[in-house]
Design a protein around this nucleic acid. Sequence first.
DNA 1: AAACTATTCAATAGTATCCTTGAATAGTTT
DNA 2: AAACTATTCAAGGATACTATTGAATAGTTT
Lengths: 225, 225
Amino acid sequence: MSTTGDPKKSLYEQLARLGKAAASPARLELLDLLCQGPRTVEGLANEAGLSVANASQHLRVLHGARLVEGEKNGLFVTYRLADPAVGDFFQTLRALGEKRLAEVDAILREFREAPESLEAIEKETLLNRVKKGEIILIDVRPAEEYRAGHIPFAMSVPLKELRSHFPKLRRRQPIVAYCRGPYCVLAVEAVKQLRAKGFRAARMDDGIAEWRARGLPVAVSEVSK
Amino acid sequence: MSTTGDPKKSLYEQLARLGKAAASPARLELLDLLCQGPRTVEGLANEAGLSVANASQHLRVLHGARLVEGEKNGLFVTYRLADPAVGDFFQTLRALGEKRLAEVDAILREFREAPESLEAIEKETLLNRVKKGEIILIDVRPAEEYRAGHIPFAMSVPLKELRSHFPKLRRRQPIVAYCRGPYCVLAVEAVKQLRAKGFRAARMDDGIAEWRARGLPVAVSEVSK
DNA sequence: AAACTATTCAATAGTATCCTTGAATAGTTT
DNA sequence: AAACTATTCAAGGATACTATTGAATAGTTT
């Protein structure tokens, strides 16, 4: 048995279980997606570009490391992070990557210096201005993710439905879009489309995970099923 | 080339480099040791119970993930953490393990409920009482680690030299011992020995890394070489 | 320069991980 | 109950990782 050996050794063995869970790009992508909110296996597989069987297998590994939990609802199994601390861990991993791996920095620049140059928004004042109605804050992720958690006062405008909202928007009113976080292209694309139509749009590169990590409030709209 | 592919994919690939580095018990132990301060390859190999070649190989992997850096001084190569953020990452990993893995919790209990039951010391008041001289705070790690960073007002009493300090100590004066952190046995052993001799000894389970993580001051005694 | 030392390199065998494929399970709908 | 669906399980070959061994490198001492 492993617990009968040197306790010090077996401790590192246990911690290595977490490291191993984080040792695969596919699993990290799944974790990132799950940081946005619960999802079914098929949903995760599609978004991460994995076969369903493969995604299921990776999820089982993550479950083995106690990082995610699955709950069977009828025909579907919905996975979610087992603990908010898992999100913190992922954030720390990402922060470390940004700080230490030049490659990550290069990839991020590729994102951020995308087509239109994207202004950074001051998060401190953002929420107040949104409250006052000076700024419209839109959440361009799929509605499902919006429901699982979003920034207060943000309205849900999934990227796919963005065009249908154009008539409602005033051209002079500043719009700020956000999505899953710094690596997500949804808000980049939304800003591009809005600007193309003459709107004053900017992107906030933080997602829900970053927002929560700052200790800022997160709203949830639970729908009775 | 990996950078020519989907940037999103390659991002997770890069982050997985960090996960892979943390996927081996041996490397985690090396990281833990390096959180205490710089060390040579041989020193690390001895303390972790690895062959020198094996330790060197693992260090090369850690270096490949930009987590540690080595500097050649004459015949020796001294490794250190590449960035304090690496320490944060390790702390987060450990915290996650404590929170999510029942096995880690069990191992920790095995440590803490060791021979003598060890009182928890209130860290808030500890430093003040040490300043006033009410408590003697001893650092029972090797002198080398003490020099690399220690709690202010602590005196260096490596476990091996503990016996030689007995005559200097008063039997009534409370002694608090600390070492590398919650998983390290040095302070446990020190307290055992002190109590066996009739001293009033307790263990603080925080080490330098935890201390620093709380934002508390750390002293360094740099010796000209 | 020769002997010695700390570290790294290179090759190897054993083991674990990864993704794919096809079948099995559990639950739903018809 | 039969057909269907989402998920998991099981087996396989390809690949990667780990620890060991012995040799090579770089620097020191004699």
